[in-house]
Design a protein around this nucleic acid. Structure first.
Lengths: 343, 343
DNA sequence: ATTTATTTTTTACGCGCGTAAAGATTTCAG
DNA sequence: CTGAAATCTTTACGCGCGTAAAAAATAAAT
């Protein structure tokens, strides 16, 4: 530890008794050198605490070891959890993840893509804003940088999409709700930013038709990413007008449901599936907070682990394939019904 | 737009009719060149869509334009919101923020500091894990990189700390609760990871002594960052044992309170400040979800905007001062009582 | 118009590392 | 032990830009 600080790879190579090109090769891919050489280098790294200058490394390399991760809204703990898994796997595979959040702003998303382009990443995992995304900006970006979309699909963009099967969410909740009580009406935002919302509405309509039940879609106003407040206000409005066509409400997503339940509590509606309860409420996503609503929220859960795991794995395959797939891949994971107390 | 792609600054300089050193100067600081020159360069940037290679730029620059942001736990929407404000201001000031989350893991935090060091950032905003942080790793890091701590203070580390005044939180809630009903007992984790928790307990004890009231501290088991579940389990335990010394509970933070309220609902305790309610519950932080608990949570709010704004401003000053302050700065912002329905 | 201060151009070198090519060395199968 | 294959060393160049220094051009002040 008492050794003086190594200034560059040249110096490091000389003190470790190995030629610089071999050291360089090692840092590009530790498995590309003989095991004995690798051991010597790693011993020297330990001893001298040397780390190559990442800027000089990336300057000439055609492909960096960076991976970009873009999420639409970090204040949603759902994405916090996804990011955790993704980052972990990137690091395990020897990549450096760079995390960005659009914070719900299309302008931000565009700027992030610009920034990412100049980072020359080996690949990017992009969860787009959805309806508000600048489609052409994303399209251009995907042509330059190997990209896997996740969470929200945008038709044809990127080399692959990995997400959850919205039909699987809705079919399970609708089936369960209509089997155990009154068939559900569907509660959602009028102009959802997220394309999954549209898929869920269609799945609801389809399921209701299959079951030969009459569908009711309740659409509430509101824009932005403050879903809870939109759900709460919308619920107040509907409940005060007594405009609910059934005693069972299926919310498009958990954050709306959280607001809905909060309104029910404020008004004094009892939510649950016991006798004496006024209303059943269920939803989709298994948001981290959904366990702690009052009552706890019956919902359909993303397969978090599989989605993030497969997204990363797909990106690695894409990188190894040189950034292009023969044809765009789409992988959807099924939901799992989470029975709690609200329905 | 039909122009062919510019490959480097040399080419860009020649097509824009300006010498390369001047162009380089411009990219270092646009205000350092004459206004007319700046206009010509910016017109050319627009026309040719040129962006300098960030790796080559940062290689030789003594100081990059990067700013590191480290948060302890991204799945907490509190930090999502803070990050949004911080990133915005960094970008406005011409810096590139790099976001990292320790995800509650001390090992991760250490790795992030290593990564950050090699990013050679102009400065770092660090919200440490707290008790579990590797203090010596952070200390070493702060010697190498100009760092401002925020959210959680660690004595003497970094050049400055910006956060909330825990005493201000607790004094307001305790004062309010004891003025309007039974004095509160204090509900917290036995081994809190976050140093703010300790400060809040001490503030509670101090306030109770001042008011000549008997303090009661209820400590529940549990480790990790799943505060809601720890709060819920702890509440179940305490409520089932009827071990609550008063009808008023002050939780150390909102996430514990969210779990506490969920347990109350499950057991059938009515929480609120109306006649007929069994229990009053209040807390601290004004977590984004605290508005949507049942009942909505009376709490004390961080001055989010001031904390994040002042943290960024302090870092900018630190950078301009060459990375060192005469003496360590500590800035604490007062809390604001948020009256809702739970107490 | 002349002087002075400011800005830009010209020229040139260096940063830390990637990488190519040719020769030397080591490893391992037979 | 021999020879081929794999790996390493030596040498050398280039990447895109920062930046220093001196000369030239421009702007501001007298």
């Amino acid at each position: 530890m008492g050794e003086r600080k190594i200034r560059n790879m040249e110096e490091f190579a000389s003190v470790s008794g190995i030629s610089r090109p071999t050291v360089s090769k090692y840092f590009n891919d530790p498995t590309s050198v003989r095991a004995s050489t690798r051991a010597r280098i790693e011993a020297a790294i330990e001893q001298y605490d040397y780390r190559p200058n990442i800027y000089a490394m990336n300057q000439n390399r055609q492909l960096t070891k960076n991976i970009g991760i873009v999420v639409p809204y970090l204040a949603d703990p759902f994405f916090g959890e996804i990011v955790r898994v993704i980052e972990m796997r990137c690091i395990e595979a020897g990549f450096s993840p760079s995390l960005f959040s659009s914070h719900g702003e299309p302008e931000q998303e565009k700027d992030i893509l610009d920034t990412l382009r100049s980072l020359k990443p080996a690949g990017v995992l992009l969860a787009p804003l959805g309806r508000l995304s600048d489609k052409s900006a994303i399209e251009t970006f995907c042509r330059d940088v190997p990209t896997v979309l996740f969470d929200s699909n945008i038709d044809g963009m990127g080399e692959a999409f990995v997400g959850s099967d919205n039909y699987s969410f809705v079919s399970q909740t609708v089936e369960y709700l209509s089997r155990t009580g009154e068939p559900p009406c569907f509660f959602e935002m009028k102009h959802p930013a997220n394309p999954n919302a549209n898929k869920r509405r269609r799945a609801y309509l389809d399921m209701m038709e299959r079951l030969q039940l009459e569908p009711h879609v309740m659409q509430v106003d509101g824009s932005g990413w403050a879903f809870e407040e939109i759900g709460r206000k919308g619920a107040h409005d509907i409940l005060n007008r007594q405009a609910l066509p059934t005693n069972t409400v299926l919310c498009s997503n958990d954050r709306l449901a959280i607001g809905f339940l909060s309104a029910c509590f404020e008004i004094g509606y009892k939510v649950g599936r016991s006798t004496g309860d006024d209303l059943r409420v269920a939803s989709h996503d298994d948001h981290p907070f959904s366990r702690y609503t009052c009552p706890s929220l019956t919902t359909a859960a993303h397969d978090y682990g599989s989605v993030s795991g497969h997204a990363v794995e797909t990106l690695f395959r894409l990188i190894e394939s040189g950034g292009r797939f023969q044809r765009r891949e789409e992988t959807l994971f099924s939901a799992r019904l989470i029975m709690r107390d609200s329905a």
